[in-house]
């Protein structure tokens, strides 16, 4: 019981410390052994929660909110702009593994909609210009 109830916290931490923001097959097995929880259970939990990924993502995970308040402020447009700027489609990772694109449910930034979350930072009031600047900044920041 002690092991099992730490499972989600462990998965979050492992993902946080991986450059590609994901939990690899090896790690899943390791966690299963470490906590004494069956591998299928570890898989089950990892795949249930949207924040956890078993697929490699970018160094910067761009999560575009598409819940009601962001949707009415043009979240779909925001997605298209990011797709163009990064040259990938939603759900994909850039070749240099720097960025990945996905949708997310509301991140509590509805007052600055349309909003995105990139790793731990939230950015709002987005438009084409701002997105360009943001991507530019992150390209320089991470290498």
């Amino acid at each position: 019981m002690i092991g099992k109830d730490k499972l989600i916290e462990t998965l979050i931490n492992v993902q946080k410390n991986s450059k590609g923001h994901y939990i690899s097959e090896d790690k899943l097995e390791e966690i299963s052994k470490e906590l004494g929880v069956s591998l299928s259970k570890v898989h089950g939990v990892a795949s249930f929660y949207s924040m956890l990924s078993t697929k490699e993502r970018g160094e910067y995970v761009v999560q575009i909110c598409n819940s009601g308040p962001c949707y009415i402020q043009g979240a779909n447009n925001i997605a298209t702009i990011f797709e163009e700027e990064l040259g990938i489609k939603m759900g994909e990772v850039t070749e240099d593994k720097k960025f990945s694109l996905e949708f997310t449910s509301c991140i509590g930034a509805c007052d600055i909609a349309p909003a995105v979350k990139i790793n731990n930072e939230v950015y709002g009031g987005l438009n084409k210009e701002k997105i360009r600047e943001l991507v530019e900044m992150l390209r320089k920041e991470g290498n």
Partner: peptide
């Protein structure tokens, strides 16, 4: 404190 992991 416990964290959720993205599930409404």
């Amino acid at each position: 404190v416990r964290s959720g992991a993205g599930a409404y």
